[in-house]
Simulated scan of single mutants.
Amino acid sequence: MSEQAPTSPVEPWLREILRCPACRSELRDATGEHGPELVCTSAECGLAYRIDDGVPVLLVDEARRPA
């Protein structure tokens, strides 16, 4: 499986200001098991937030924990 940078379904202007709600670190685009997601860049946090129809679901309780 290749680790290509996916095209973000999130608008570029919004993508620039989003931060992880748990630790306030930047988020990077990724593709998870269920589709596009934003992943925290912090090594301590690393939560992955799904994107539903172009809308990031930035809820810590619904985030996927790192493996």
Score class of each variant (00 low, 15 high):
residue 40 C to H: 04
residue 6 P to W: 07
residue 54 G to W: 05
residue 6 P to V: 15
residue 66 P to Q: 05
residue 63 A to R: 07
residue 4 Q to H: 06
residue 63 A to E: 13
residue 61 D to S: 14
residue 25 S to D: 15
residue 62 E to K: 09
residue 41 T to S: 04
residue 15 R to Q: 05
residue 24 R to E: 03
residue 16 E to G: 13
residue 49 Y to M: 06
residue 9 P to A: 00
residue 39 V to W: 03
residue 64 R to K: 15
residue 38 L to P: 10
residue 54 G to S: 11
residue 33 E to D: 14
residue 24 R to H: 13
residue 3 E to K: 13
residue 55 V to A: 02
residue 17 I to Y: 07
residue 10 V to Q: 04
residue 37 E to F: 10
residue 38 L to H: 00
residue 60 V to W: 10
residue 67 A to D: 14
residue 32 G to Q: 12
residue 35 G to N: 05
residue 21 P to K: 13
residue 24 R to M: 04
residue 4 Q to I: 06
residue 1 M to E: 14
residue 6 P to M: 07
residue 4 Q to A: 05
residue 40 C to K: 10
residue 13 W to H: 10
residue 12 P to G: 02
residue 49 Y to S: 05
residue 11 E to Y: 00
residue 14 L to C: 13
residue 23 C to Q: 07
residue 29 D to Y: 01
residue 46 G to Y: 13
residue 67 A to C: 05
residue 14 L to H: 04
residue 11 E to F: 02
residue 2 S to E: 12
residue 22 A to Y: 08
residue 44 E to C: 02
residue 64 R to C: 10
residue 5 A to H: 10
residue 55 V to S: 10
residue 12 P to W: 13
residue 32 G to F: 07
residue 33 E to K: 11
residue 46 G to P: 10
residue 66 P to H: 12
residue 52 D to G: 01
residue 57 V to C: 06
residue 30 A to D: 10
residue 10 V to I: 14
residue 40 C to Y: 11
